[in-house]
Design a protein around this nucleic acid. Sequence first.
DNA 1: GGGCACATGTAAGCTGTTACATGATTAA
DNA 2: TTAATCATGTAACAGCTTACATGTGCCC
Lengths: 191, 191
Amino acid sequence: MARSSQTETAVLGALSVEPMTGYALRESIRDVLGHFWSESFGQIYPALAELERQGLVRRRGSSRPGSSTFAITASGRARLRQLLAQPIQPVPPRNGLMLRLFFGRHLGPEACRSLVLEAKADAERRQAQYEAIRRELEHEENHTEDRPFRLLTVSAGEHTTRAAIAWADEAIAALKDIDAANDAPEQRRRR
Amino acid sequence: MARSSQTETAVLGALSVEPMTGYALRESIRDVLGHFWSESFGQIYPALAELERQGLVRRRGSSRPGSSTFAITASGRARLRQLLAQPIQPVPPRNGLMLRLFFGRHLGPEACRSLVLEAKADAERRQAQYEAIRRELEHEENHTEDRPFRLLTVSAGEHTTRAAIAWADEAIAALKDIDAANDAPEQRRRR
DNA sequence: GGGCACATGTAAGCTGTTACATGATTAA
DNA sequence: TTAATCATGTAACAGCTTACATGTGCCC
């Protein structure tokens, strides 16, 4: 039951929107869920096969490549609801940027600054993407039932990136102070 | 070189502050780095053994349990600097909350609301922890060289949790609207 | 007819977690 | 003397990534 079928959840969820091929599925997971979820493609086809075996999805059309799509079945929808209702599995944090900053003394303020600037640029890029998704969602006619829920996730992304940008600015200022504190004695000596 | 020695980074980093036993090391990683980094304990001892073999850490005292501590060596420090300078390995996102909200239509606004409330409570708990760490850091006399860098990571945590709380409030309001939109037609019919 | 995007899979291998095994020391 | 905590490991396994293998259909 708790068989970590997180891949199943993502696959069933994507198919709950519309039937598609395995190939389209992996693109959908990459492009649509990509901001907060990822599946390695080596998992998708096996998961799909297992779901088919359990009758949770059905292959439409011949099994010849290029002509078959996978559709979720009624029991698949039931299973999806069941999976979504299960407790969230916490992901152990692994924030490489924070690890480097925490031991930043060994790295030096300059290198830390670069890392923070990179992170800021990253956040700004994502911010632009969220805005684009929001615009798209707000003008789209399809999936109006899903829209408000999707907007929740976009909004979460926007809040997160805004916070990242604000933090980055603060961090850059702080790193300048560290630099100044290090330089000050030397400069005094030099003059 | 790129051998995913992220565990080594964390271990060397922790030992760069002060020598300690493997047991203390794992507690330190859990309690101090825990907010943004995690290591499974099954990795720490093998990593420690490998680092010892490479001369990057040295075992002080007898090898009898309870009396030996591990200390970082000069070449260990050099290795740490090298590891910290390596490019950050991006973690594939796996945000269970967002996955559930994205497909929230199948879950219903009520269940989504619970999830968001849980997330908010979580963020508030972490917020309190960050405040405590900040106070501790600002009053501590030790590790003054590390302090400004550690404060950067605390600040990142604070920004992130503040954003999470703000988003949660917004999301709860949005979910109320969804509920209202669903109820309205029924209520009209009933009256 | 050559290249590209579509399409479906498999297998090796690495990473990381969990559970287990063992024993010393200390506090109640 | 029993339980808890400190301390050090190992081994099995689950999960995931990567690279590979294979083939189709379409467009230039």
